[in-house]
């Protein structure tokens, strides 16, 4: 794809749906300055802007993966609206919200949470639980569920005598994780 070619909204949406890395790269770079400006103007740092922007970007990305999702506004407006909402929430949590927020773009108000499926385990929640779980459990579980290694490979990697031992270890770890998640 030609880098200099100006992409239409539809082209961006299509690129996101099809996991087109180049399109996502361009889109990411286009809208970050706007969000950075917004966060900076409302008592936030650049790192916070990055976090908020990426979270919003992922929400957009994931929503576009759903077949029933319909984007009713410009991508820019959507990203800005989500960032605004997330940042407001953040300010509320930190008790920094002064009752007024400086806006620079049009935005839409969401009737529901952009990610409304509460049954799913959030990224942050999983990250937090895994961190608490510690090694070697984290590596075992990650290798098995994320990296899709076989039990033999895991046993070999982690220095267990055989796959069965590794399996037993995995079950223990999983049980602990379960407890962490439900607690």
């Amino acid at each position: 794809m030609n880098q200099s070619k100006i992409l239409s909204e539809a082209a961006f949406i299509e690129g996101l749906r099809q996991d087109n890395r180049q399109v996502m790269n361009r889109l990411y770079k286009i809208h970050f300055p706007m969000v950075l400006h917004f966060i900076n103007s409302n008592s936030g740092t650049e790192d916070e802007a990055k976090d908020i922007y990426q979270e919003a970007f992922i929400i957009l990305y994931e929503n576009l993966q759903k077949t029933d999702f319909q984007l009713n506004c410009k991508i820019k407006t959507y990203i800005y609206s989500i960032c605004r909402r997330l940042w407001l929430k953040n300010l509320y949590v930190k008790s920094k919200f002064l009752g007024k927020i400086d806006d620079f773009e049009d935005f839409i108000i969401f009737d529901q949470e952009p990610i409304d499926d509460n049954s799913e385990i959030a990224f942050n929640q999983m990250e937090e639980a895994l961190t608490k779980l510690g090694e070697p459990c984290r590596s075992v579980l990650e290798d098995y569920y994320l990296n899709k290694l076989s039990m033999n490979q895991i046993a070999e990697k982690m220095g267990y005598t055989n796959a069965d031992n590794a399996k037993t270890q995995k079950y223990k770890c999983l049980n602990r994780l379960k407890k962490l998640m439900t607690s």
């Binding site: 970050f32 990426q54 970007f57 992922i58 049954s119 385990i121 990224f123 579980l141 569920y145």
Partner: peptide
């Protein structure tokens, strides 16, 4: 089942996040 789904999502998001971090670093 939920845990597995959580892992799947986590995995996917981690991949995207890594990608986004790459974009950011590039930017």
């Amino acid at each position: 089942k939920q845990l597995r789904k959580g892992f799947a999502n986590y995995h996917k998001q981690k991949q995207v996040k890594t990608m986004l971090n790459d974009f950011h670093a590039e930017m």
